[in-house]
Amino acid sequence: MSLPLNHTLIRQLEDRCFRAWPALDCRTEHGWLQRFSGGYTKRANSINALGSNTQFTLQIKDELEAAYCERNLPPIWRLTPLAPEDVDATLAAQGYRRIDESYIQVASLDDRFAADPVVTIAPAPSPKWLAGFAALSPVAPHHRQTMARMLTAIESPVGFAQVEQAGRLVGFALGVVDGDHVGLFDVLVAPEARRRGLARRLTQSIGAWGCQHGARFAYLQVVATNEAALPLYATLGFKTVYSYAYRVP
């Protein structure tokens, strides 16, 4: 289920997402936020519209993309409802592919979000957490140092959730509290531990942890084709506020 578009709410959620997944370097030009992180994740290396003052012409497009070329990065456009209407069609006409359609969803934190004793949440990632998360994501070896820098740069309160079985970490999730919202990121379950409800338990536990830190709502980003996650999130009350997609050369 989707909610009517609310550009003020969209901008608030965008800002929360940017703070929760901080890029190593940022620049604002012509109403666009450029994020740079050495190529680790699309969202941390993308061009994002900031709202009503966002401008777009072919000259502006070339200016924004030049900063990525200087860093030997592909220019990745992350298009939300805040982007000018002609951007998507212009990029499509120039051969940019549209990929990874995704939803931003929000839920009220109610009694469906209860802490599970199998899930432990720490304020900082242990070396074991970082190694297990990188292996399961997977994160390329040359990006692992960048990953660690980004995760440890998140402003608190932040919670690194894990599930351990037989001495091995088989479940991961990340929670970031920002005001009255807690963001849920990167719920990962090892293949051998799937279909046991661990994704639900991780999600519920992050929500409960967020409540303890003053959050009243949870938000997340989920790829539109994730047929396993979408029904789970729906049962916990998550509704789509808006969608976005990437345009890549």
Rank of each mutant, 00 (worst) to 15 (best):
V177W: 12
T146N: 07
G38R: 05
P74E: 15
L73A: 12
A23F: 00
L198W: 07
A234H: 13
Y40M: 14
A228T: 11
E70R: 12
T235N: 13
R144Y: 03
A92E: 10
A140F: 00
D180L: 04
E227V: 10
I47F: 03
H142Y: 12
R16S: 10
P74D: 14
T80S: 15
G197C: 02
Q221Y: 04
G197L: 05
L73G: 08
H30Y: 06
A199D: 03
Q204T: 12
V163H: 00
V248H: 12
C26F: 03
E14N: 13
L136Q: 09
A148M: 09
A107M: 07
Q12M: 08
F56W: 15
A229T: 10
L24R: 15
L50Y: 04
K128L: 11
I10C: 13
Q212R: 14
Y68G: 02
V163P: 00
R195G: 08
L236N: 01
D88M: 07
F113P: 00
P138D: 13
T80P: 02
P138E: 09
P74H: 06
W77K: 11
T146S: 04
P123E: 04
I10P: 00
P22L: 02
E164G: 05
G197Y: 04
F113H: 02
P117M: 12
A218W: 00
T54M: 04
D62F: 03
W21N: 14
H213Q: 14
V163R: 07
M1D: 10
H181I: 08
W32V: 05
N48M: 03
H142T: 04
E65S: 15
D111Y: 12
G132S: 03
E29K: 11
P84W: 10
D62N: 15
A161M: 02
P141H: 12
L236G: 00
E227Y: 07
F133T: 00
P191L: 01
T146M: 12
F36D: 12
A89T: 10
E85G: 02
A234F: 02
Q94V: 03
P81F: 13
E29T: 07
E70A: 13
G39V: 00
V119G: 01
L174W: 03
R194S: 03
A89F: 05
Y40R: 11
Q162T: 10
A122Y: 08
G38W: 01
Q59L: 13
P231K: 11
W21H: 09
G210N: 01
V106S: 04
P81S: 08
